[in-house]
């Protein structure tokens, strides 16, 4: 129940690339081949451990359809991480990445960690986008990249956890202002008393000082 940090994620990308399936695989560890279209936004949550700390992930799975794009935009600002998903068997979903990225950069806070995900890696025979292309795109735009399969669960866990690690490192480096909840990060209940006493300096500095004492 208790957690050290809480991170808010959003999952974005074209319709049908498997956003909801990724979330379901991550939260419920199951795959549902036929999934209804997501209307607006759906919520999911899970606890993970990083560096021995409990971290709660709150994930908002958005609708990929164009009609919901304006609604989706409202979620960028408050998110600490975003999974930008395309389908490796559909070239067009890869081609649209630039638009998604522009949208995300425009509406989110500048520190938001974006993970690029090529989903459906189990469908190798129907692949239209090479892994190298995904890697190149990610390098060019400064994203972390990974190919996943919501069906076989390959890399799904890693995708969510690596994003969290990235955010966690940014917190340690003091890049994120953890006292501003608008960044999509919240300090857990057991942390908040210590953090409050340390003040705006942040838990990172406090933790380092503590280490020095010992």
């Amino acid at each position: 129940m208790a957690y050290a940090y809480l991170f808010k994620y959003i999952i974005i990308g074209d319709t049908g690339v498997g956003k909801s399936c990724l979330l379901l695989q991550f939260t419920d560890k199951r795959f549902q081949p036929v999934h209804d279209l997501t209307i607006g936004v759906e919520f999911g949550a899970r606890m993970i451990t990083i560096d021995g700390k409990q971290i709660k992930l709150q994930i908002w799975d958005t609708a990929g359809q164009e009609a919901f794009r304006s609604i989706t935009r409202s979620y960028y600002r408050g998110a600490a991480g975003a999974l930008l998903v395309y389908d490796i068997t559909r070239r067009d979903t890869f081609n649209h990445l630039t638009t998604w990225l522009e949208d995300a950069r425009q509406h989110s806070n500048s520190n938001m960690v974006i993970m690029l995900i090529g989903n459906k890696s189990d469908l190798e025979s129907r692949r239209e986008v090479k892994k190298e292309e995904g890697e190149a795109f990610a390098r060019e735009h400064g994203l972390v990249f990974m190919e996943t399969s919501a069906k076989t669960a390959a890399n799904v866990e890693e995708a969510f956890i690596n994003t969290a690690k990235e955010i966690y490192e940014k917190i340690q480096e003091g890049v994120f202002d953890i006292n501003n909840e608008a960044n999509g990060i919240k300090i857990g209940p057991q942390h908040s008393t210590a953090g409050g006493a340390a003040g705006a300096g942040g838990a990172g500095a406090g933790g380092a000082a503590g280490g020095g004492c010992c």
Partner: peptide, 12 residues
């Protein structure tokens, strides 16, 4: 309006 409700909830 479910969509607005969700955004409001998302905004803490």
């Amino acid at each position: 309006n479910a969509n607005i409700q969700k955004i409001v909830a998302f905004e803490n």
